[in-house]
Design a binder for these strands. Structure first.
Lengths: 348, 348
DNA sequence: TCTAATAGTTAGTACACCATACTATCAGTC
DNA sequence: GACTGATAGTATGGTGTACTAACTATTAGA
């Protein structure tokens, strides 16, 4: 891009853009790669600029899976340069924070260039007010993770809910088409994340996207499951008792192909029914499913799509794109990186 | 409020606030009402300030009901000073725009003090890009209403979807408790509007809140209606075929009290089932129902509440407040006024 | 009476952005 | 081949918004 392009894009004047660009060139963040010689419109040839990807790196960590720390050193454009994994059973309570700190420090040390900041995608509730984390499964209640890590690492730290980060990752580097993106993350449980115009919608207390305990069944609705499983919440029919990796694998155990497909279709159909009101209220442009491809990508996804099309009328606006994640299990990780970008550089 | 209070509230320094306040006092928008003599904390007594409500008025018009123009001259704090109504059958196509213009001019002329701007709540889709209106029922397709009115009235004009305006009105002047407000407007049809942190969530193309054609029934779900009515969209079971003033009145015709109540409960139950996924994804703090009180406030509302409580687990966050509108049919009107405030004064 | 807290002012400064005017360069046309 | 009009980028000065620092005035309570 040239300075003039930037000015048009951002809406600032050429003068202002030139001044800012000069500053960024001084700092080494932007590089002047000379005039664009391709003939086209009349006028002086623009001088092209490019982002120096090696100027700063981002460290991102994903805590989605229980017993695993997943991390990466990324460029400013979301490319993972160095991915690491740590299988551990200790990541609970205060010890978990220590372990996380060490893991971050390792990644920071592994970065070839200075680190812009550290992004963390964690399960549980992240309060939008004070950024404390409430994750019962991790033994964290109102843990000021951002503050602790900022102090220990001496770097800007951004903490976000994993499903929200996933949505952000899909929006920024996935195959999404629009600006209203819902991401459904299927792992040990189910979580959803919503991104509108590039910003996470956290909910008033950080509880948005907690869809595991929405009732997905209707009494006697003719699904292959007989009596629905009782959920940890004490009720039955929760989405989480149907749609999660362990639950699905358990349910499909011993079923033949036809029965498996019927089961998956039934789950997909219920997912679609839950998505329908959300699609209508938000006019979503994209819904992205992330999780085990062998389970989700097939009858389940198709049934969800069919169910959605049956239950929402595309009169004013088309049905959203509903597809598997193009960046798969990297979504929360990449999204945590984007969170750092938006916090430190104000993007967007 | 005093200058110091304002500074704390807004986050600017006392100096800056003092400067701005001085300017606003000069312009007559703020009035200095002398020192606060109530003893309390130590220190110099604050000098209290108040908004001069008579400095500017807002003109708001609501086009929700077919065949009716509903308008008001309002103070900056949302109080209606002069409400007017015009029953007309002409409000279609370009003639409708002429009529609307005249109605606005009447209201502007009726205002005792200068008018800050004009807000219009209209059914149909209002594009968030260029603010054109698409309302098939009004014979408007991609009508640049905001531009036309701005030019004709020579005043700032803000046009918004009626349900969205209603949600904004509820948030600003209703009895809502939190910052994530969903408003359900029941009139000739059903519409929903969503406000997050004081801003309307319009959807990527202005289509958010179009819930009339979400399927609300499930095959053989044991409701009092036998075969569900066929909707104008050609399908059956749409929320709009159950929940709208004409449909409800038609359905209750000839039913005894018990049967009426059963019907209303069944509709409320379906409404709750539709709301559940939305509540979970957004962690809504308030849901407000606006429309005919005799139909909505009673078994329908109760059933919706019960159904919602059954289908969402309040583990992390409480179930949202679900109640009838405290400002009733004024919500879209007041919301249109708030839209003017946020556009012209940048609130919030 | 003294101290600590609070409200509000004055003076000077930093920053981001803008408008205007300028130079340099190109495509196309008479 | 000079002229016109469009485009890219720079130089200069101005404006609006906000800040910090230091000050005065006032009050409750030890």
């Amino acid at each position: 891009m040239s300075r003039a392009d930037l000015a048009r894009e951002i809406g600032l004047t050429k003068v202002t853009v030139s001044a800012v660009v000069a500053e960024l060139i001084d700092e080494g963040i932007i590089i002047d790669i000379g005039p664009d010689d391709r003939p086209g419109v009349p006028g002086k040839r623009p001088t092209l600029l490019t982002l120096c990807e090696d100027h700063r790196r981002i460290v991102a960590v994903d805590l989605t899976r229980e017993g695993r720390l997943s991390g990466a050193v990324m460029t400013l454009t979301g490319e993972s340069m160095d991915r690491r994994r740590l299988e551990t059973l200790l990541c609970l309570g205060p010890e978990g924070v220590d372990e996380l700190t060490n893991f971050c420090q390792e990644l920071i040390a592994a970065s070839a260039t200075p680190v812009l900041g550290v992004g963390v995608a964690t399960p549980g509730l992240v309060s939008p007010d004070n950024n404390t984390v409430r994750a019962p499964k991790r033994g964290w209640s109102d843990l000021p993770l951002e503050g602790i890590l900022t102090e220990r690492l001496n770097l800007p730290v951004a903490v976000g809910n994993d499903a929200n980060c996933a949505a952000l990752g899909e929006f920024a580097f996935g195959a999404t088409e629009g600006s209203y993106v819902l991401s459904i993350l299927v792992g040990d449980g189910v979580g959803a994340g919503l991104v509108v115009d590039g910003s996470i919608v956290p909910g008033p207390k950080g509880g948005a996207g907690e869809v595991a305990h929405v009732t997905a069944t209707v009494n006697g609705d003719g699904a292959p499951w007989g009596t629905p499983t009782t959920c940890v919440c004490g009720r039955s029919g929760c989405l989480g008792t149907l749609l999660s990796e362990p639950e699905l694998r358990e349910a499909l155990k011993g079923l033949d192909e036809a029965a498996s497909e019927a089961w998956l279709r039934a789950v997909g159909q219920r997912l679609g029914a839950i998505l329908a009101p959300i699609v209508a209220v938000l006019d979503l442009s994209d819904i992205v499913l992330a999780g085990p491809t062998d389970l989700l990508d097939g009858p389940l996804l198709e049934a969800a799509h069919d169910s959605l099309r049956e239950r929402v009328w595309p009169s004013m606006n088309p049905i959203p794109r509903l597809a598997m994640s193009a960046i798969e299990d990297r979504a929360p990780l990449v999204g945590a990186g984007v969170l750092v970008l938006s916090r430190t550089l104000g993007i967007p």
